[in-house]
Simulated assay, not measured.
Amino acid sequence: MKIGVFATFMSPLATPQMIRDFGRRAEDTGLDSIWMGEHVVLFDRNTFGYPSSKDGRIPVPDGGGMLDVTATFGFLAAATSRLRFGTGVALVPQRNPIYTAKEICTLDWLTEGRIDFGIGVGWNKEEVEACGYRWEDRGARCDEFLEVMRRLWTEPVVDFAGKWVRFETARLDPKPIQKPHVPIIVGGYADAAMRRAVRFGAGWYGFNRDPAGVREMLGRLDAAFAAAGRTRGPEFEIIITPPMSMPVDAMAAYAELGVHRLVVNLDSQRPERVDGRMAEIERLVRLAA
């Protein structure tokens, strides 16, 4: 089992030097990957609360915000040579699918195939609407956008006539280094997310899931594969961010479930806390080796 780190970088703590040093340290200690979450704008009031916090708010520093995933991964790629980079998750239904296809395949090209495209439909109604889309149909729009991207990545010339996207004889180059295309890792827990993982996914990503929660989700995922007349194979990756409180000896339980990668949450980016947390994560890397 491989060990990665979830480190959504936030200003003002995540300076260029901090990010560069963190990436090099992660690579030097044998971490598999760095994953980042995505939010382009935040709101003082939300219809639905952030699911991973007690007060429903994303814990950002005062006066700070989340750095853009694409730009940050490009910056990190220039400072490293082996680390993989994963979006955890890219909010596909509020993005422009053609621009997104271009950004992700360019990252894949420049990193020589070190990108995982983790995707989800999102929880922030206000953010989806601020980006110009409707909240209620985000699932269907996600599926159409993924189909657009997949075809642009794999076909020399594409005609597309969907509900939200229409074009003729479009060419997108360069194509991704990874074949058949950049791996799509589907996040989410609804039945629609399970179906999306079966249809588009090279893997499934679960956030803040303990072994019991992973076992439950794998049962639902396998049921979705069976409904589609398929069986989940060993090449379909299971990627999990465990709870912050996960004891080291829980690694064995995740491994027994067939988890391919544990992406451990860095949590605070204050320098005095990063060192302590990275020491814990580096211990996991040694145990997993």
Rank of each mutant, 00 (worst) to 15 (best):
T106I: 06
G187R: 06
P211M: 00
R95L: 14
A253F: 01
G258Y: 03
R114L: 00
R215G: 01
W153V: 14
E126K: 09
M244A: 14
R220N: 07
G56R: 03
W135M: 09
L262I: 09
Y99N: 13
V40H: 11
G122T: 03
V5E: 11
T241I: 01
I58S: 03
V285P: 02
D62A: 15
L257T: 04
M246P: 05
P243Y: 08
G188L: 11
M217D: 07
V198I: 09
A288R: 09
A228F: 08
P51C: 11
A197W: 03
R57C: 02
R273Q: 15
A7K: 04
R209V: 05
L146E: 09
I238T: 15
F73G: 02
R209M: 12
A279L: 08
L262F: 12
M10V: 06
D32N: 07
K2M: 03
R209S: 13
M149L: 11
R283P: 02
Q94C: 13
P174L: 14
F43M: 05
D28Q: 11
G203M: 06
P271M: 12
F236D: 11
F236L: 06
A193E: 08
D21A: 06
P16Q: 03
G188K: 11
E168M: 00
E38H: 14
D222F: 04
E155P: 04
K175M: 11
D137A: 12
W204G: 01
S53Q: 09
P247K: 03
R230T: 04
K2I: 00
I184Y: 15
R151A: 13
K102F: 05
L91R: 06
G49H: 12
Y50C: 05
V89L: 15
A71C: 07
G132I: 09
R141G: 08
T70G: 10
C142R: 08
N96G: 09
